[in-house]
Amino acid sequence: MRDSNRLQRLQQRPLWDFALALYARPGVEQACLTLQDEAGVDVCELLFHCWLYQQGLAASPGPLATIRAERMAWQQQVTATLRTLRRRLKPEAAHNEAVKALRATLQSAELQAERENLQRWQQWALGSSDADARLTKSDISQHNVAQWLQDTLFSTPLDNDLCRAPRGRERTRAALFALASQLDRCESPR
């Protein structure tokens, strides 16, 4: 897929800027945290798909699997390690200024790791060519965004995942709908 208008619009709105703007919208932060903590969703990948959706694009499943594995390794080895350390220090930071400062440093490092991850997702998308077909035009209607995100992020349907409690499925779906409700309608290419 070579749609220079869509790719040009991706270049004009960096993924990091898009992620910050979306994350600041009502309910998005909580939805992302719910999806991360209860459903194991990589929020950077989630934001990446939302960014593509905004420009009428989607990642092709084959090429996506390769970059997903690479980016997931980063998330697990770098970002999640920093997050775990930061969260582990939270109780002690409440009454120890030195630990509070350390926790703030870890939080900053975690944010930098997420930014680097998003930049790598963006580089991958912008490196798309007809030959590798990383991106395709998206035909997702605004009414189906939550379902599309669910299908893109989860390898099995939520209803068939026996490990997930019914209440967890409900919270996961609610988080997907909350996030989808904050995405602007996809612009038609000119």
Score class of each variant (00 low, 15 high):
63 P>F: 11
78 V>R: 02
120 R>G: 12
124 W>N: 03
71 R>Q: 10
185 R>C: 02
183 L>M: 14
19 A>G: 03
60 S>G: 00
4 S>R: 06
147 Q>K: 13
97 E>W: 01
157 P>R: 01
59 A>P: 06
137 K>V: 00
75 Q>R: 14
57 L>R: 06
48 F>A: 11
106 L>Y: 14
123 Q>D: 12
183 L>G: 12
188 S>H: 10
101 A>C: 07
23 Y>A: 00
87 R>T: 00
39 A>D: 07
152 T>V: 10
156 T>V: 15
87 R>W: 11
161 D>K: 07
49 H>V: 02
84 T>E: 07
149 L>C: 10
174 A>M: 02
33 L>Y: 06
145 V>R: 02
119 Q>N: 11
121 W>H: 11
55 Q>D: 09
75 Q>W: 12
126 L>S: 00
142 Q>I: 11
44 C>F: 01
18 F>I: 10
141 S>R: 03
181 S>M: 04
44 C>I: 02
138 S>Q: 05
158 L>V: 03
24 A>H: 04
165 A>V: 05
36 Q>C: 01
5 N>K: 04
181 S>T: 04
10 L>N: 02
34 T>G: 01
66 T>N: 03
156 T>R: 03
108 S>M: 08
163 C>Q: 08
86 R>K: 15
174 A>Y: 00
68 R>S: 14
15 L>S: 06
87 R>P: 03
52 L>Y: 10
143 H>I: 07
